[in-house]
Amino acid sequence: MTRTVGRPVVRGLVTSLQAYQFAGGIGSLGVAMLYYGVNPVVAALGFVNIILYGWTYTSLKRKHIINTWIGALVGAIPPLMGWAASSSLAMPGAWCLAGLLYAWQFPHFNALSHNIADQYKRAGYVMTAAENPKLNARVSLRYSLLMFPICFGLSYFEVTDWMFQFDSAIFNGWLSLLAYQFWKQQTINYAKGTIPTEEGLRLASIQAKKLFWASVWQLPAILILSMLHKKGQWDGILYHLGLKEASNK
């Protein structure tokens, strides 16, 4: 594939065995550091993520489109690791944060894979963008919309204040609108009994690119806003500036 042709194993600079040995070594070292330097829960999550990505997800890429759903779990686990480093995973806010990262990966990756679907197919990878383009766009829209209730959950479970709902909705709405446009075009392209036209495919490609780049900016924006709207954040800042008295609670 064009996007991976320059990687060391592909170029023959490193053999597959050497890559495996190196990955096994640094993976084991990383899990050990997490176990002794943080706590067993974080280490366990790190170990699970290595297995999910290095074995389950990678193996499934040549077998079934469900690989993308498994791969999204890999992106959702790091926030849980960060949370577990200092708090309990029994807190619902941890799962809202993980859910945010999980949902985001579908509009991001599905849009990315749309324009290189043929490359995936030639390489022997079973991706939704190549196997079912209409489903690929529908999943992008579905998970873009899911970000609204997830952000609501962050406020409801007191990770963020309620103002977060207003400005996060701007970026979630932007992403959802572009995902809708992508889905709408693919619905037209792959309507029952319809063969996509060259113009229709061109428009879908444009919509996919717009959605991809929107996702690149949307996630950092949401995460920055969640930090700015962290519950009690401004109370603490105003207190330290001497502009507000300490709460008795």
Rank of each mutant, 00 (worst) to 15 (best):
S168Y: 12
A90H: 09
N189W: 11
W183P: 02
I50V: 10
I237A: 08
L34D: 09
L141A: 03
A19F: 07
Y190D: 05
L13C: 08
G236W: 11
G99D: 05
N67P: 07
K121D: 14
A129M: 11
Q165A: 07
L17M: 09
R142F: 14
T68A: 10
L178S: 06
E199L: 15
L141Y: 04
A23N: 13
L223K: 00
L219R: 13
V159R: 00
W183D: 12
L177M: 11
F164G: 02
T58H: 13
Y239W: 10
A123N: 12
A98P: 04
D235G: 08
Y57R: 03
K61W: 15
W162S: 15
E158N: 09
I170D: 08
G173D: 12
L145P: 01
I195T: 09
I65N: 04
E158D: 10
T4N: 09
K249F: 15
Q105G: 12
N172L: 11
L146T: 14
L73D: 03
G24M: 13
T4G: 06
S59G: 07
L211R: 01
L228G: 00
V9D: 07
A137Y: 01
A208S: 06
Q186I: 06
A19V: 08
Q181Y: 10
Q105N: 14
A246D: 03
S87E: 14
Q21F: 10
N132S: 09
A72L: 00
L223I: 11
T197P: 03
R11L: 15
F109K: 04
R3D: 13
S215L: 05
V5G: 13
L141E: 07
S16C: 09
L141Q: 08
